Simulated scan of single mutants.
Amino acid sequence: MEVKADRGEQHLIVHKGNPHPKVSHTGVYDKDILCGDCDNILGRYESYAFDLFRKIRTQPVSAGKIISVDGVDGDMLVRFASGIAWKYAVTIPDRGRIDIGPYKDILRMVALSGGQIPNAIDVTIARIIELDGDVYYYRTPMPDRKKGVNVVRFCLGGFLILLKIDKRPPGNWLPEECWLRGREKGAFVTLPAEYVEEATLHAELANQTPVRRFFGKMRERSARNSKQG
């Protein structure tokens, strides 16, 4: 919804090391994962996160600060992140399947059953601060480790999501309140883009000639549509 702000806009899927980006109307999609009922369950969590991200973006902040938001359902955010990660754990290899071992089934339970969230599962969400304003780029989930703790890492519209999938506590590399399971007040750290892998990778890929050409045409189309309107 954020990428396709104007009618006719498209996604551009780029892989590091591949000079030929792929134009897509829908982004990465696997129609064989979910039934309608389960899709509706995950869609509710994703809509909740989408609305919260928009709310967070309205707050003027600087990098290195923490954004506090009252009235947050931390468990909804854990289920949102678990649903995204689970879909990538069960998709086909060509769609970017990840291997998270036994946590595949645990994340399915967290995302779809509505049962109690185990201590091994938690999430923290950081806002990436760009010098030129919000930039809506996305990175598919990947297994990662932070201070020896296993996480699934992905990026959505300028937010970095780290989903803990580990029985060990997350340690003290973030303030405790930034871990959101069970919380009714959200704390979201802000990170300068130049220190975030997703942001620097996006800048590198966006500077490739095919990508610059694509977005140049998109800007021209948007300008023409604005004049016609």
Rank of each mutant, 00 (worst) to 15 (best):
I84E: 00
F80N: 14
L52T: 03
A63S: 14
D70M: 05
L77H: 15
I56M: 11
C35S: 06
I56G: 11
I41G: 05
D51S: 06
V61H: 12
D70R: 08
I67P: 05
T58F: 00
G36V: 02
A49H: 14
C35A: 10
S68H: 09
K65R: 05
R79I: 06
R54Q: 10
V78D: 03
V72H: 00
P60L: 08
D37F: 04
A63M: 00
G36T: 06
S47A: 13
I67H: 11
A85P: 03
S82R: 08
A49E: 09
I33W: 03
Y48S: 13
G64V: 02
D70V: 05
K65G: 08
D51F: 02
C35D: 14
D70S: 08
F80S: 14
F80L: 14
I84M: 07
R79E: 04
R79V: 05
I84A: 02
D75N: 15
G83W: 09
V78P: 01
A81E: 00
L77V: 14
K65Y: 10
N40K: 13
D39K: 13
S82W: 04
A49P: 14
G43S: 01
K65I: 06
Y48F: 09
Y45N: 07
I41N: 12
G64A: 04
V61I: 11
R54Y: 00
R44F: 11
A49W: 01
F50R: 15
I56Y: 09
D37A: 14
V69Q: 11
L52P: 00
T58E: 10
V69P: 04
P60S: 15
Y45K: 04
I41D: 03
S68E: 09
D75P: 01
R57K: 10
R79P: 13
G83C: 09
L52D: 01
D39Y: 13
D73Y: 02
R44Q: 10
F53D: 11
Q59F: 13
G71C: 02
D37V: 07
S47T: 07
F50Q: 07
R57Q: 03
V61D: 01
I33C: 08
G36Y: 11
C35N: 15
D75M: 02
S47H: 04
K65T: 15
I56E: 03
N40H: 12
V61N: 12
D70I: 01
G43R: 01
D70A: 10
F80K: 14
F50E: 15
G36K: 08
Y45M: 08
V78Q: 06
S62R: 09
G64K: 11
G64P: 05
I84H: 03
S82L: 03
I67F: 05
G36M: 00
G43W: 07
G74D: 02
I67D: 07
G74C: 03
R54E: 08
I56A: 06
C35L: 00
M76E: 07
V78A: 07
E46T: 15
I66C: 12
I67M: 13
G83F: 02
D37H: 07
S68A: 10
V61W: 00
N40A: 15
R79N: 06
L34A: 14
G83Q: 10
I56L: 15
G43Y: 01
A85L: 00
G36Q: 00
D73Q: 01
I84R: 06
R44D: 12
F50H: 14
A85I: 07
R79Q: 12
R44H: 14
K55H: 09
